[in-house]
């Protein structure tokens, strides 16, 4: 029930933000489409903690800030590789063990790895993540495990 209400609220907010018109016709159309989406989602049985990780919502902000910093740092690293000699890159393939308990945590971890340029999660099977890194330094910093630790703290 909590998830149904939250989905309805999110969709309503989304509609209002995107339309920006508050005439009865458009509001009515919005209400109809929200009802339709919620009904279809109910029929698909798509409501659980995985589709809407509500319990994680409030802990995300500090993580996002940290992740944004990491993205900036690794972007500078990759741009340096692009303009420098090609021999400066050392493509590496490593295996990481995801220590997150839930599937949501593992997906957040893999997505964060991919979101920072220089490292891409290629495969996620069980708790094994296969990563391709542009340089050995990028791979080493992942193996240092700070990102994994921060995602694990998100879960608690």
């Amino acid at each position: 029930m909590r998830h149904i209400i939250s989905l309805t609220l999110i969709l309503a907010g989304f509609w209002l933000l995107l339309s920006g018109h508050f005439v009865p016709l458009l509001l009515g159309l919005g209400a109809v489409s929200i009802l339709l989406v919620v009904a279809i989602a109910l029929r698909m049985d798509a409501f659980d903690h995985e589709n809407q990780p509500l319990h994680l919502t409030f802990r995300f902000t500090p993580y996002w800030v940290w992740l944004a910093g990491e993205i900036v740092k690794s972007n500078i690293e990759v741009v340096r590789c692009i303009w420098g000699p090609v021999s400066a890159i050392s493509p590496t393939r490593i295996h990481l063990t995801a220590t997150q308990r839930s599937d949501v945590g593992k997906v957040i971890y893999a997505n964060s790895i991919t979101l920072t340029p220089g490292t891409v999660a290629m495969r996620l099977e069980g708790d094994q993540i296969e990563v391709h890194a542009l340089t050995r330094a990028a791979a080493a910093s992942l193996q240092g495990g700070e990102m994994g630790r921060r995602v694990r703290e998100l879960e608690r």
Partner: peptide, 22 residues
């Protein structure tokens, strides 16, 4: 430039990552 310069597909993926994120 990176997507043109890098030697193989997986390294080009990183170059495309720069334009997609920051």
């Amino acid at each position: 430039i990176g997507i043109l310069r890098f030697p193989d597909f997986f390294t080009r993926l990183h170059a495309a990552g720069v334009t997609d994120t920051l």
